[in-house]
Structures are given as structure tokens and as C-alpha cells.
Write a protein that binds this DNA or RNA. Structure first.
Length: 133
RNA sequence: UCAGUCGGCCGGACGGCCGCUCCUGCUACGGUCGAAAGGCUGCGGGAGAGGAAAGUCCGGGCUCCAUCGACAUACGGUGCCGGAUAACACCCGGCGGGGGCGACCCCAGGGACAGUGCCACAGAGAACGAACCGCCCUCCACAGCAGCGCAAGCUGGGACGGAGGGUAAGGGUGAAAAGGUGCGGUAAGAGCGCACCGCGGGUCCGGCAACGGAAACGGCAUGGCAAACCACACCGGGAGCAAGACCGAAUAGGGACGGCAACGCGGGUUCGUUCGUGCAAGCGAAAACACCGCAGGGCGAUGUCAGGCUCGCCGUCCGGGUAGGUUGCUCGAGGCAACGUGCAAACGUUGUCCCAGAGGAAUGGCCGUCACGUAUCGUCUCGCGAAAGCGGGGCGGUGCCCUACAAAACCCGGCUUACAGGCCGGCUGAUAUC
């Protein structure tokens, strides 16, 4: 399992299927190659100070680590967008949240959000993260 | 003991399970991702956020652009003195002013006879020095009053009023009103005179200096604001690790070479092109070019038709350069200790240590035990009290917070701001005891 690091990959996943919960939003995208599962994390500035954002990302990362690999589909990218509740929510509960969110993603058709209006650029959820940090 | 003030320090501890980043040794030299550059992947060992890492407010190192040595202009900054430093607006030691009983704290603390400007409201007046009230003098007018007179009236005096002048003591306004207090003096007053204080320029003494002190002299002159413009002195080239260096796709575009195809026909009017002629408008001509039409080549998964787009196509190599990768990247004005110099900031010598290097960004996640704090309950005990009860201390249980402020991003020196809780030391004041 790899980390997602390139900005272009994040933008691609942002167009994919998504499922939310109290502490985070999961986005996913199936790739056509044979590569491993890749996971990225996005925590925007509106969630708090740098220390709090760090903590959110670390708890989310720990969630993914605890997860069984079979919950995710192979050759896919996932992005977890952190919310402020991830700071305080009970860890075991969050783990259940993540399993059910991934389960919902699995049952969804292949590309529900892939077709977007041509002239409307996709909302860039990760752009605010890059500068000034 | 209480209250205060200054300085320094810490900023949970131990353990379990599962992980992350970097360094290093060994093994492998394979596997995997990528077009490439390059990345990832095994086992052992070691290291891994802060006092502010923050705000980015100053000062430097370093890098590039420039050549910026000097001077000038513009802009910005600094502005009591001395020291310290790589440098500073910081720091240290002084001086002056202000506050506090005191320890101590605070100060944008140079220039207002270079010039310009501003001083709201209130007030008479706010700057080439002011007369509102009041006080005083003179004159005018005249009520009541006094004297004389039978009376008309005359004389004296002069409230209120009017005119002229003197006056800065008093009232009132204001942030600020033209030295202060006292005595003399005067019509009333006034540095008008005198004493003391203040102030001023010079002299002497002390100090490197800021500045302080002394005696004599001068009747007093320079209102405030430079955090208004400004003048003066000194300092500053610009941009910043997203600096910079190296490697380097895809696509588009540039250059060189090679191969293949093609370089065909007609028109070429006119405001094209070329040629002739003419001063010129123009006229005439030509077809290697532009342009137009046809034909031909290429492109859409393929074939045919219609239509469209395009005008050489393909290959190899070269150079610039984008994404991306590597580097810069942590041994440094470094930390600690001792000694020495200095009131101190700091500096020197010796010894010793190696102490994060990430990059969608590692240093964590989940727990357990303990400590600390706080709330509450139980119990024991001490003091006061007749009792109820009040106050203090110890032990135990439970709950809460389970820590505050906040996370390196090239590196240092400072400043500023945020911060639960706690520790240590110096000093000051008050109280008690000896």
C-alpha cells in the first residue's frame, strides 16, 4: 500500500465516488493499471491549527493501518478528507465508520460522478492545502 | 507568615502492543513502479519538535541577479551617552525625566532663532504678545444726600451712566494664558526694586561622554506640536531555499541529416508579386512567388459514398525547456562544563559532545500504572465554641482535566505575541517571635 503524493492524483480522485461520515469523507477511484492500493489524506485549513490538522491526519492514517486490506478494492486510489470531529471521536467508532463507508463505495456503480459538465471545472478540494504550509 | 518585585528553570513520568522518517552495518544485486531521471522493497543497531518551532517585526550568514568603489538623487530606517557584537531597532552599563513607602518599573529621550504649517471646543485673547469682568486715574453729565439761602439757586461730594487712559495682582475659559512665592512699592498695578527658587548664556571643577556641581553675572529673553511637513547626522543595491545547481519525459514548437512521395494543369482578375514604360495616376507584359480552382498526398478503428480538416510525410540526431526527480540539507557566529578577564552584556582558553532533516510534509496511534491539579464523599484528628457549626491538616474512595500555548520547513542573533500547572533563587514592605 502506497501513499498518494502527487497533486494530479488527488485531483483525479476528487472526481470519483465518495462516501461521508462524521469524522471524514472517503473518495475513491479505480485505476486501470496493476499498481498497489494508494491512499492519500487531505485536511484543509478550516479544520484548525497546524497541530490539530497534524493530529487529524495521524488518526486517519492509523485508521487505514488498522483496516483489513480486503475492505478496499485493488488497483484503486483512496483519499480521506478529514473533518474536525476526527480530533475527538472515539477511535473504535471511527474504524466502524470507515468500514461502512468503504462498503457503501463498493456497492456503488463504477463511475457515478465521472461525467461532469464540460465547462465547469471540478471543485478543487485540495488546492487550499498546498500554499502557505 | 502574608503581600510584592526581579531573575532563572521545567513544561508530565514509566511501561506494553502496533507503526513512521532519517542515518549506519550486513545481506541481495534480485523483485517492483516509471518513457527516463530516479523511487520503493529484507534483517540488526542508533537518532528523531519548541520555549516559543508561532507572528514574520528587525539584524546577519548563504545563493542568484547585478557590479552597486565613490558621489548624488529618490525612498525607507535609526535618533541621550558609552560599551558589546558578524550585525541590529535587540542586549549590557550609565545619564536625564516620570511613577512607587520600597525592591523596582516606565519613557518615539536629538533639532522648534533654516523654513512652512497646525493649536479643535471653550475663552476677551492661542503667537509679528491678549483688556471680557474687575481694580485705578482724569473728564462729562446728573439722581438722592450735606452745607448756605425765605426762595430761585450756589458750593461740596459723587452712586448709576458716558468718554479717554492706566493696569496683568484677582475672577472666568482652556491641555496650555507669557517665570513662581514673599516683602517693598504704587492711584491701582507690574522684575518696577529686593530676597529665595526657577531660567539663560558664558567661566571654573568632575566625567571618555550624555551630564552633574560651584561661584559670580543677566531682570527674564526661546509657548506647545517634529508620532505635521521638514532640516541635520548615520545606516541600507535587489530578490529570496518556490534562492541556486544537476538530470530530465510526454506534447507543441526550433535546427541538422537521411529516406519516400511530389514538384501536374488552368487562372492569376484586382487594392498582390516581378519586369518594361511614364514625373505620376496609369498602361502593357510575364508566370519562379502569393492567391483561387482542379488534381494529388495525409488524418477519423476499417471499406465505400458524401462532407470536413490539413498541405509534404516518415525516421534519426541536436539544443533550449515544462511536469517530475536529485541536490542545496545540516558541524554550526553549535551545545555543555571548568578556568580566566569584565560591574555587566560579552569575550578568551582548555576539555568534552554530535544533537531532526521531512517534503500532500516523519517524530505517531491505542492502552495500562503512577504522579500532579481540582470537585465531591467517607473517616481520623487539631483549634474555637455550651451546642449547632466554622476553619486547618492527614488517610482512603469516586468523578473530571487525563493536560496549557502550540508543531521544525535553509541556518543563526534578537524582538513581539500565546501559555494549564509547577520548581528554585535574590531583593523589598508589613506583621509575629527571639
Amino acid at each position: 500500500m502506497d501513499r498518494l503524493r502527487q497533486r494530479a492524483d488527488f485531483l483525479a480522485v476528487a472526481n470519483g465516488a465518495r462516501a461521508g461520515s462524521a469524522a471524514f469523507v472517503v473518495q475513491s477511484r479505480h485505476r486501470d493499471d496493476d499498481g498497489p492500493i494508494r491512499v492519500g489524506f487531505t485536511v484543509t485549513k478550516k479544520n484548525g491549527t497546524a497541530t490539530e490538522r497534524n493530529r487529524i491526519r495521524r488518526r486517519l492514517r492509523e485508521l487505514v493501518k488498522r483496516l483489513d486490506v480486503i475492505s478496499m478494492r485493488p488497483h484503486s486510489d483512496y483519499v480521506l478528507v478529514g473533518r474536525r470531529d476526527a480530533l475527538t471521536r472515539d477511535f473504535a467508532t471511527m474504524l466502524d465508520d470507515l468500514r461502512s463507508a468503504l462498503d457503501r463505495l463498493k456497492r456503488q456503480p463504477k463511475m457515478p460522478r465521472a461525467k461532469m459538465p464540460r465547462d465547469k471545472t471540478p471543485r478543487d478540494r485540495t488546492a487550499s492545502r498546498k500554499p502557505t504550509e
